[in-house]
């Protein structure tokens, strides 16, 4: 019975095996951390909406205020997506016969809602509140990106717990005077100096907390 002998070159292989053996777990760990993070799995979600509604046109070019349509955002946890009636304030006349608006007209006639696909969603076990943020000087742009430049809305942020806490721990870079909350084109860190923002935090006593029960209730 002949014994198996490692070939001579396998001696030189040993250091390689050690190096690869050390790198491989590191590689896998980093890959999972990077690839399975909410930024990769949840960010940039951009569903195809039933009506080709453009924020870049309405909120950008036509300069409409977010609250014209999302009119509950200052008072309620939920930022209401507007009912068909809101679109029809204008579209009974403007682009009256556009095929792009066929579903809106149908919905207006039948009373059935337009089935907008929800873009932003946190797990059902977490609680989020728009009014608590918007009235305290956190702009839409901090969480939704430049919606006023989006043809189709997509998720600009991962909406993960780590992301929520990132801001709750360090709100200084994310607050602005409450009257500028809807001015998405202003960049928070460059428009207001750090001192001004610190002033706001003190003046309005803005202290977002990290107690689990704030968001898991």
């Amino acid at each position: 019975m002949s014994r198996f002998l490692f070939p001579r070159w396998s001696n030189a292989l040993l250091p390689f095996v050690l190096v690869v053996g050390a790198i491989a777990p590191l590689y896998v760990t980093l890959l999972v951390a990077y690839g399975f993070s909410p930024k990769t799995l949840e960010g940039q979600y951009q569903p195809v909406q039933p009506v080709p509604f453009s924020h870049a046109l309405h909120a950008g070019k036509l300069g409409m205020d977010c609250r014209y349509c999302h009119n509950t955002v200052e008072n309620a946890a939920h930022a209401a997506v507007p009912p068909t009636q809101t679109c029809m304030n204008c579209h009974t006349q403007i682009h009256r016969e556009s095929p792009n608006l066929a579903k809106v007209r149908d919905s207006y006639v039948t009373g059935m809602p337009i089935e907008w696909i929800k873009v932003h969603k946190v797990g059902d076990y977490a609680y989020f509140n728009h009014a608590a943020h918007v009235t305290r000087g956190v702009s839409c742009v901090e969480c939704h990106g430049r919606v006023d430049q989006m043809e189709v809305v997509h998720r600009a942020q991962p909406l993960s717990m780590g992301w929520c806490l990132g801001c709750h721990r360090n709100p200084v870079d994310h607050v602005r005077p409450p009257e500028a909350v809807f001015e998405l084109w202003k960049d928070t860190t460059t428009t207001w100096s750090k001192d001004e923002r610190l002033g706001l935090i003190n003046r309005f006593d803005i202290h977002p907390n990290e107690y689990c029960s704030t968001c898991h209730r």
Binding site: G43, Q44, H154, R155
Partner: peptide, 19 residues
């Protein structure tokens, strides 16, 4: 994936109690 918007997200690996 991080850089391009796509309709094929979010990807739920664990559903937890998301829904």
């Amino acid at each position: 994936m991080r850089a391009t918007p796509s309709p094929n997200r979010p990807i739920h690996i664990f559903y937890d109690m998301d829904f």
